[in-house]
Nucleic acid binder design. Structure first.
Lengths: 107, 107
DNA sequence: AATTTATATGAATATTTGTTCATACATTCA
DNA sequence: TGAATGTATGAACAAATATTCATATAAATT
């Protein structure tokens, strides 16, 4: 019965660790200037890759690479329109997380 | 007068970039499993270095290094009590940011 | 079909970053 | 004062990551 408790505790820790890792992974995505700029740009309106690239003055390649990261993390979504790909925020959580961080910065 | 506008725009971008960088720097700190674990541990109660080290099963040195990062970012504060240093969350923003990320994870 | 425009991607490189190990610093206690 | 305990820190190494460059893929237009 002690063993049972011990294993329960270990499971709990394991579960927590998974949550912690997920949290860290999420924040890691926000932890890059280029990606934060892209996300903030998309906060204002959806944009295609060229527009993001020009607006933020970042290489098209760099933008594409980072959009891939953002999409993999489910922070942005995309749809095709002819030759261009239009990107937008995946949901309101993204805005919420940005705002949350902003509040800490302005102190 | 056009020049004036241009420089205003440039200033605006510059200001924004600084904000973006600050945001990214903040999230970068949250973007590590060890640091998230430490912060979450301190969410429950203040702890000294040894306690954190044992609780999370992380080397004392690694904990100290990360506590330094967390303190530099004003996410934790510390006070001395005899031979030990007691660490706690710097303010409620930390809790808010963690909760904000959690909400996105649980989807 | 060939060309042009928009985007994605792989490889290479440089930089950043986290941990470990050894050791220094600080405080208490004998 | 010397020993013991708790914490901090520097150097070194390994791993992760962002950008660039070249090129591939995809859609539209002629």
């Amino acid at each position: 019965m002690e063993n049972e408790n011990v294993s329960k505790i270990k499971e709990a820790i394991l579960r927590n660790n998974e949550v912690f890792d997920a949290l860290a992974e999420l924040y890691k995505v926000f932890g890059d200037g280029t990606r934060v700029r892209i996300l903030c740009a998309l906060t204002q309106s959806e944009m295609n890759v060229s527009e993001i690239s020009e607006f933020l003055d970042i290489t098209q390649s760099a933008v594409s690479h980072q959009l891939r990261v953002l999409k993999t993390s489910s922070l942005v979504k995309s749809r095709r329109s002819g030759k261009t790909m239009i990107y937008s925020l995946a949901d309101e959580h993204v805005r919420a997380i940005i705002d949350c961080g902003m509040e800490h910065i302005v102190e």
